[in-house]
Design a protein around this nucleic acid. Sequence first.
DNA 1: TTGTAAGCGTTATCAA
DNA 2: TTGATAACGCTTACAA
Lengths: 361, 361
Amino acid sequence: MKSKKVSYADLARYCNFSKTTISRYFSNPDSLTLENQEKIREAVETLGYQENKIAKILPSGHTEFIGLIIPNLYMPYYSEVMHHLLSSYSTYGYKFLVFEGQSDIELERKYIRELSAYNVEGIITLSHTISSKEYASYDIPIVAIEREDEFISSVHNDNYMGGIQATSLLYKSDCDILFFIDSTPYGATRSAYYSKDKHSYSYGRLNGFKYVCNEKNMPNEVIIQDLGLSYEEYSEKIPKIIDDIAKRYPGKRKGIFCANDTFANISLLHLLRAYGNFPDDFRIVGYDGSPISAQAIIPFSTVGQQLDQITKSAMEILVSQIKAKHRRIPEELPIRHEVIAPILINRATTQKETPNIAGAK
Amino acid sequence: MKSKKVSYADLARYCNFSKTTISRYFSNPDSLTLENQEKIREAVETLGYQENKIAKILPSGHTEFIGLIIPNLYMPYYSEVMHHLLSSYSTYGYKFLVFEGQSDIELERKYIRELSAYNVEGIITLSHTISSKEYASYDIPIVAIEREDEFISSVHNDNYMGGIQATSLLYKSDCDILFFIDSTPYGATRSAYYSKDKHSYSYGRLNGFKYVCNEKNMPNEVIIQDLGLSYEEYSEKIPKIIDDIAKRYPGKRKGIFCANDTFANISLLHLLRAYGNFPDDFRIVGYDGSPISAQAIIPFSTVGQQLDQITKSAMEILVSQIKAKHRRIPEELPIRHEVIAPILINRATTQKETPNIAGAK
DNA sequence: TTGTAAGCGTTATCAA
DNA sequence: TTGATAACGCTTACAA
């Protein structure tokens, strides 16, 4: 029922000191006599003082907040990124104000205004709606993860290398023809700048795919369509693509490189349901290294993004930017684009031998 | 490169008003003449003023923060809860400071201290480590979701009803014997109060199971073991349980009620791998209605928690508590325990007819 | 080693 | 309709 919290003023009154002395007790205790330290310590205990960081913000200017903008929470990829970022609390002490973008650009602008109103010290964004140019104009430390990043710092996994690795894996599993399957990025028309494909994460994966196909003289097809924005939509459209491929290339072993694990999983499920088991004339590899790739009934090959490293790098960049901004002569650090090597995860779906549900592991 | 932000003082200086008038412009514009409103509007625009909510907190006492403590982010259940909570921003405007508990009680205490230092207006917790008694002692509005709640408000799904529904489903699919599989809650020994099983969410599910078994005179077994704390551990221990059951009851149709979808999925995968398809003498139902239940190769039956309603109710309770606390005469609202009815999702794994991978949907 | 006083950017209470 | 002035709880020169 006690309503007001205990403040420095209360402590000061209690032990006949000035607020300044109380402040010093917390920030630089050794500047007080041991005797007085003890007095205040006792006051803190009996009055039950609790730190008030909000009050410190105004004078210090440090909120210790980082704003986090993610597109959604139903994709495990984002949950995992978030997990790693939240864990960085133990290292840096930053608290995260989290917003879910939902692909609504006006909503995201509102989020940014809100974050700015709360003086967050920096922003980490994974959302694709707002252009990096616009982000840059907000004049706040910001790091992008795996998204368009022309005007802001960013961390990416090496999509090109990942594309090469995945495609090579298909090549080695005795495929006759290779396919790259992806959705047009976020409806394609949504943001005009995305038409410059090079900003899209899948650009690298696709190019790695093309490179290997050319190198090895492999017949191949790039299938990029609007597959929608939900698991249900994907589940409707991807099976049609697979069926079409099966029909057009009977007797040939078809290697499918899906641009993410969700697509790969849907492809795999469809094949298993269509054939009752994994067909001899298909091979599959996904991308992201998300849990589903390991937990599917036949665990499938994928390219693992090292999210621990990606997020660690993102935090390092952001924190260094924040620190630079806090210097007496605020400094504007140059934009950095970090690239993290992915790790190939070679499982049953890209072997020469055809996997089997029975006994899969 | 502009370092300092524009403040009311700047606006006031710019148009020869007092800060008070500027403040009024934002909080109650109609108390100014139209002429002066326009003057200030123009000043805001040319100086580029941006709202500073941090500064408003001290006088107003309202941070508009809610602290969210979740156990982890690798379980889709928590991501989904979080998704619904974050979405409530459009309704209530509360920002979420998110912490991931990691089953470390000291860490969580630190989180709570941090949240309290930032004057969050309330806390929503889904973590199981800290007792509701301790939470209650913190003297801050708090709502628990699906966890022990003796001394704090909470929202649960109706586990007892869910248990009855799931078990009935197994009964109707012509099973000869039923099993309830769950892990001892969080290591069991971890928190002494958990030994009073009634605080555990699974208590209700188990009791629903027992009730139906008694009612129908069904042979049954309750298998509650320490299954670990990660997908890998589950994947090691659950198959052994299933194998054991299969061996002990050959020729009988065994109905498995898993206390959550993760366990159910692992059971399902194991059966499919062991038999190459879904065996005739097993039936399975999970709990939670998480995505995996719909996305498994053979979508399995489950009890859907209505997370949208659960989270909505949690926010309502929390917000009403917050408002009560902010009244001139702060009021302590009585503890509320809300229960939301679950929805049975009847899929292929609990039919009389045995499902098949081929053509599954 | 301690204290005084100004300041951080708002709101709220009086007066004018 | 507007303006002084005192909060809010802390930090930080500058003095003592």
